[in-house]
Write a protein that binds this DNA or RNA. Structure first.
Lengths: 193, 193
DNA sequence: ACAATAATTTACCGATAGGTACAAGTTGTT
DNA sequence: AACAACTTGTACCTATCGGTAAATTATTGT
């Protein structure tokens, strides 16, 4: 066998990398930081990610995208039960972002020029999220135009809630804002359904 | 006379510093970057800001806070004409953030650990904005509880709109989101006024 | 005109950045 | 046990980081 151990170890380093990038940003996360976070020496890090920090961040984004695709996007796109899919989305997102104390790596990447190299992935992540949510709302009989508006508003609103909760160091504000967004979407479905 | 020229030149460097910090973040903005952005040599920069990058960022935050206090917070707190104060706020904010293409330095500071040193100022900025907006809504006869909710939602929503517009590289989404927030607040006033 | 003061340039500092090279150690397979 | 493939630690590289020191060049009030 050839790559089995390599793959599992590379994969198991990614969550730690993600956490380091989350906390320090792409520029702020030094190789020393990443080494400490993963418990891997610099040599090992470059063995798994020959492309350096950029490849590490790429892997992190891939990993995040995979998680969201599986946990969030797929249920929305499937839309078997729009109401509970959306309810689940808000629950999962609240847990994922630790009530706003955990930064969204993807969102924060878009904010400074260090993230230019990842612009396409950042764009794809948000575009897919919004599209999936809009589709789910439409499945709940919300008119397309309103569905698009609400979806955009919800995804944007979640990002804003993270920024605010971090700035105020107050997760209650995150919870309030997200709760309102949730009600707004579910109300729309129950109004039109 | 002693500090006259010093003060004016220091002050005139601040907008350029702000733009550099906006684009690259605190860690990402190197002294070389800041030097190029301001047209001042490293030595001159340290002459005006002996405390280095941290003092530069402090000055930038002070400057931003001053601008917002004057252009945004004061009219809201005064609340002579709530409707036009809020309408003006959205206009000014849209122009200030260039329809979401310009990052909010304060918000982005809160996102990574590099901003820990400025946590108090970041918190104060958002707290004052929300309080001022809530006060203005109350002056428009919106009940206190609803006013607080709407104010929080609006400030958070603007931050989210910036994140999303940057991520999608689409200022139209910023404009749509902010337009909806504006309507939401003005409607609340016209409903209760 | 002149001394005092402020601003800028230049050169420099140690520390650390991201990244590479490679030898030594593990590991699984036969 | 032997072998190749994979993994890891160490040492090292150059560039640049934030920051400093001192010399030089305007400005300034008197």
């Amino acid at each position: 066998m050839k790559a089995k151990r390599a793959l599992t170890d590379r994969a198991s380093a990614i969550p730690a990398l993600a956490e380091a990038f989350r906390e320090h940003g792409f520029e702020g996360a030094t190789l020393a930081t990443l080494s400490k976070a993963t418990g891997l020496g610099k040599g090992s890090l470059y063995n798994f990610f020959p492309g350096g920090k950029e490849e590490m961040m790429d892997a992190v984004l891939e990993n995040i995208d995979g998680w969201f695709a599986n946990a969030i996007f797929a249920p929305l796109e499937q839309a078997l039960d729009p109401v509970s899919a959306i309810a689940a989305m808000f629950d999962d997102v609240t847990a994922y972002f630790r009530s706003g104390q955990r930064v969204c790596v993807v969102g924060s990447l878009g904010l400074n020029s260090a993230g230019d190299a990842f612009a396409a992935k950042v764009k794809g992540y948000f575009a897919r999220w919004i599209a999936a949510l809009a589709h789910c709302l439409e499945a709940g009989r919300v008119p397309p135009a309103l569905a698009a508006t609400l979806a955009e508003e919800a995804v944007s609103g979640i990002q804003g809630a993270i920024v605010l909760a971090r700035a105020l160091d107050d997760e209650a504000s995150f919870l309030r804002i997200v709760q309102r967004l949730r009600s707004s979407l579910l109300d729309a479905i129950s109004r039109h359904g």
